[in-house]
Simulated scan of single mutants.
Amino acid sequence: MRTQRLSSFIDTALDKTVAPGYTKIGWAVRRRLPGWPADPTPGSLRGQVAIVTGATSGLGLATAEGLAALGATVHLMVRDTDKAEGVMAGIRDRVPGADLHAVRCDIGDLGDVRRCATELLDRLDRVDVLVHNAGAMPPERTESPQGHELTMSLHVLGPVLLTELLLPLLAGGRTIMVTSGGMYGQRLRDDDPEYRNGEYSPTTAYARSKRGQVELLPVLADRWHAREVQVTATHPGWADTPGVVDSLPTFHRITGPLLRSAAQGADTTVWLAATGGDGSSGTFWHDRRRRDTHLLARTRTGAVERDRFWAWTAAALDLDPVESP
């Protein structure tokens, strides 16, 4: 009992102090603590179908490879299928016999999401795991083809719409949002979801959209419960990915030696996809543990704000805010 309490204390301390817990130090310490959840059983995803968005580099590539190594048939949902062919060849070199397919889709373009979903409904008879990993941090305010602020369209609207459209295939399956610890510094901006007010900041926009992902978890869990679709979110800590290099060069230069590998950052996503964690839906995870969604009192969200944000999301996607399809 004392060992368990000490393990829990160390884990919590790493989480609350942020920097050590998010780096590869936190990863190395946690996985050696008593009670670290067991790895997925080899072959545990054999016969299952997975989709990973944004799978040509970084966390998405590591996730696709991790799922393939567990036996899943993995569809890499990407904007550039030519690039995906090279990525898949590399995965097959490292995971002989991997069953991989490329699917073209721009998650930030809601029209393209609808087109792609129609194609998948025709091609597939099931989807067991859907990982929403695609992400971007444009340097200035950018709009999607439908006129939505791009990070919100890419991280919130596109993933919700894709899941809604694929629900007939996802019954009994799992959908996972790959979010960011950066959301801890932002409150839900239900009053300005399109970031039309104030001076635009790429990092703030990114964190706001990731906060939006997390705040919708309980709403989506209730909405998709009848289909027995589990929805969770993970954050990878600080991982060394091309996105970090391109979007946060100073941060990368300073923290580079401490950053996790992409595989370490994707570990909890792969683990949740294979095991379901503790079976709960609407929950937020980091390093194979459920985590609080708020660290600061000023970011806490009430039901009114969450409901208003969901109403905006549903209206933007032309969804019935009460009844799921």
Rank of each mutant, 00 (worst) to 15 (best):
238 W>C: 03
234 T>F: 05
217 L>N: 02
245 V>P: 06
223 R>W: 07
260 R>H: 04
222 D>S: 14
216 L>Q: 05
218 P>D: 13
228 E>K: 13
246 D>N: 14
228 E>T: 11
224 W>Q: 05
217 L>W: 01
235 H>F: 12
232 T>F: 02
225 H>R: 14
254 I>C: 07
228 E>A: 13
241 T>H: 13
234 T>C: 10
214 V>F: 07
236 P>R: 08
232 T>W: 03
248 L>D: 11
247 S>E: 15
233 A>C: 10
237 G>C: 09
262 A>F: 00
253 R>D: 15
221 A>V: 02
217 L>E: 04
213 Q>S: 03
235 H>E: 14
254 I>F: 12
223 R>G: 03
224 W>N: 02
220 L>K: 02
243 G>Q: 08
256 G>Q: 15
223 R>V: 01
233 A>D: 07
254 I>W: 11
215 E>T: 10
221 A>D: 10
261 S>Q: 11
245 V>D: 12
242 P>K: 10
237 G>P: 03
219 V>I: 10
246 D>V: 05
230 Q>P: 01
233 A>Q: 05
230 Q>H: 04
253 R>H: 14
240 D>C: 08
249 P>Q: 15
217 L>Y: 04
255 T>W: 08
244 V>R: 07
243 G>K: 09
216 L>H: 04
229 V>N: 06
234 T>H: 06
255 T>I: 05
262 A>K: 00
250 T>V: 14
231 V>M: 12
256 G>V: 04
252 H>P: 01
233 A>L: 08
246 D>Q: 15
212 G>Y: 01
260 R>D: 02
260 R>Y: 03
223 R>M: 01
235 H>V: 05
225 H>D: 13
221 A>L: 09
259 L>A: 06
257 P>I: 01
215 E>H: 02
244 V>C: 10
252 H>R: 15
262 A>E: 12
254 I>K: 12
212 G>S: 12
216 L>P: 00
233 A>E: 01
225 H>K: 13
248 L>S: 12
239 A>E: 06
254 I>N: 10
237 G>N: 13
259 L>R: 03
232 T>L: 10
245 V>R: 14
259 L>V: 08
242 P>G: 09
212 G>N: 09
250 T>K: 14
216 L>E: 09
252 H>N: 15
216 L>C: 04
258 L>D: 08
224 W>E: 05
213 Q>Y: 04
239 A>L: 04
235 H>T: 07
226 A>P: 00
258 L>H: 10
220 L>P: 00
227 R>V: 00
253 R>E: 15
235 H>D: 12
214 V>S: 04
251 F>E: 12
244 V>N: 08
256 G>M: 11
236 P>Y: 03
216 L>M: 11
234 T>N: 13
257 P>W: 00
228 E>Q: 15
242 P>E: 12
237 G>D: 13
215 E>M: 10
256 G>S: 15
262 A>H: 06
221 A>K: 07
251 F>S: 09
257 P>G: 11
225 H>Q: 14
262 A>Q: 08
224 W>A: 01
237 G>Y: 09
240 D>R: 12
257 P>E: 07
253 R>N: 12
216 L>D: 09
223 R>D: 06
222 D>P: 01
218 P>S: 10
